[in-house]
Design a protein around this nucleic acid. Structure first.
Lengths: 342, 342
DNA sequence: CTGATAAATGATAGCGCAATCATTCATCTT
DNA sequence: AAGATGAATGATTGCGCTATCATTTATCAG
């Protein structure tokens, strides 16, 4: 084995390794990509050269030559929302194991930004995309169509998915929460929501429908804000709701657990007893919901599992399994806890 | 302008656009990358063709030809920890604006996995890397060295950074928290910690040193677990601490806010009054710390800003500004709240 | 109006790798 | 032992783009 200069200035290529190992370039390529096609002796010899030189393949050259990028593009609306990062973990865990890289972008809840970001993703020639929800711009949908790339839309069930779809019905979840609160005997049920993205809107619509069906929907029992959701915002919205209802509200469905915690903490400060005076229900079932006092009724969603499922769907598709279902409803579960115990 | 078939099967290349626009390929390339070098008339003509065809450049070919990837690699230990996703947001916001893509990997707190992941990152020929902490394997350090890529280590100040470094001293923060608790009159101060990564270890060491200096360090007042940190774990560790100290502990420094919340919620369930019977201090100052009742003393760190700073350091370096400081201490601030009010 | 300079555009080559096809060599069959 | 088969290895070519240098066209001084 010839020994090349250790501290060469220019970057190492396959050929450097090939020379060092005394084989041809393509053999080195095979050792890296299809080791079973190379005899054991040569394989070791080449591997030794690779390790010695610290060679790292240039993925760009590889992708260009093979038109396989091993990249999956993922677009989520926010990096600071555990709802999305939980899903992300599922995606990363599966994709990592399967040898795919994840190129992640943050759309900041904006379809226009999403369009820009998806352009970026597409320029990396991803083998598939996982994107959030269904409110892409028309241009963006065209781009995706044209790219002929498998796409999974996650987080919610869509009526007309672009391709594959994993999620659950936020409308139904909202409907069920309202029904649950009514069945527990609460009669003046309010709603607080922030950010008001498509999914929150749907939860609210479902919620409103259930109350309407029961003849218990009043406009002043709904308080929302376009601002980002947060614990602090939950407290604010809760106070607004109390004001707009003159304090007669007896249960509040909060669009997510952060808002619910904010409402809970605020009501503690106001000496409003939960659940004695007021019931609270959150959404997402983050860890705090289980452990706060009183524990918080919430809607559990298999977020990690949703990420796993989306990733698996992508991988199946890439492996040519076309017979898998294209739409998967992950469902949800209302976790009844102390905060709605009448 | 010639019009190409709209729904061609094969993917579009520069040349397709060039033909459609009636110019040479390189001119199209210039319109995309250095528009100021092309006359306005041609520029519009080409742009029209690009839009019409829905052309998206192949980044792999571009990167291979120009050896500029416009990719920044980022490695963090966990995707489900807000501490890291906050930093990430800062990185994404700056990098996105500057036209860089972020390739993110999750090392699951394991140096071995980190080594593997950094190999992956390097194979994408990133222009720089942002990695977490300083406990890379030797092999990994060699890889990084050899790659001659700017590296920023974030989250903590290291004695021997590989290259650039942004963070703060966890040791000092731990020392200061202990000092603060002692100065508030607490005399039997305990510590609970989970996961016990390098940064938690350092906080604990600083904490222990301060107690030792004050002659108030006892082994049974320190309870840790290698398991992941969580609210639930905080409750468990808190109960263990009570057991191992026979309940005489009068203040607890929790290695992070999740643990602190767990301890707080658990003490509420045990009818231990905070801060009346027991003081609690967290770390990281997540939003809940400000709003929970009693509000939780914690250590505030500019995580988003840390991400921004790291990204800016990278960009400055890539733009040839070599005179910037290589080590930036972001500092921290102890936020004194109700939970440690004697 | 000539030549010089700058601005705009084009032709060519090569980035580092893997697909493809060709070749060599070992093993087996009858 | 000759031929057949398959495994192991290699030579060539091109992926889609940009760097480089060459060429053309516009602009201007004297």
């Amino acid at each position: 084995m010839k020994v090349a200069k250790q501290s060469s200035e220019k970057k190492l290529t396959l050929i450097d390794v090939a020379v060092a190992a005394g084989v041809s370039a393509i053999t080195v390529s095979r050792v890296i990509n299809q080791p079973e096609k190379v005899s054991e002796a040569l394989r070791h010899q080449v591997q030794k050269a690779i390790d010695m030189l610290g060679y790292i393949p240039n993925q760009y050259a590889s992708s260009l030559a093979s038109s396989k990028s091993k990249v999956i593009g993922v677009a989520i609306p926010s990096l600071s929302n555990t709802v999305f990062t939980d899903v992300l973990r599922g995606i990363y865990d599966v994709m990592g194991t399967a040898g795919y890289k994840v190129l992640l972008v943050d759309t900041h809840y904006s379809p226009l930004e999403e369009e820009k970001m998806i352009r970026t993703l597409l320029s990396q020639a991803p083998e598939a995309l996982i994107i959030t929800g269904g409110d892409q711009t028309k241009t963006c949908q065209n781009l995706l169509q044209k790219a002929r790339v498998p796409v999974v839309q996650i987080m919610e069930i869509l009526s007309q998915p672009l391709d594959m779809n994993v999620g659950f019905s936020h409308w139904q979840a909202g409907y069920d929460v309202a029904t649950h609160l009514l069945s527990e005997g609460y009669a003046r049920v309010g709603f607080i929501g922030a950010r008001m993205d498509q999914r929150v809107q749907q939860r609210m619509q479902g919620f409103k429908k259930a109350l309407e069906d029961a003849g218990k929907l009043w406009k002043n029992f709904i308080v929302t804000s376009p601002e980002p959701s947060s614990i602090e915002m939950g407290g604010e919205l809760f106070k607004s709701l109390l004001a707009s209802t003159n304090g007669v509200v007896d249960a509040v469905f909060c669009a997510n657990d952060d808002l619910a915690l904010g409402a809970l903490f605020e009501s503690q400060r106001m000496n409003i007893n939960v659940p004695g005076d007021l019931a609270l229900c959150g959404f997402n079932d983050i860890e705090a919901a289980r452990f706060v006092n009183p524990s918080l009724t919430s809607v559990q969603v298999g977020r990690y599992e949703m990420g796993v499922k989306a990733a698996e769907m992508v991988i199946n598709r890439l492996n040519g399994k076309m017979d898998e279902p294209k739409i998967v409803d992950m469902g949800y579960q209302i976790k009844k806890r102390q905060s709605t115990t009448n």
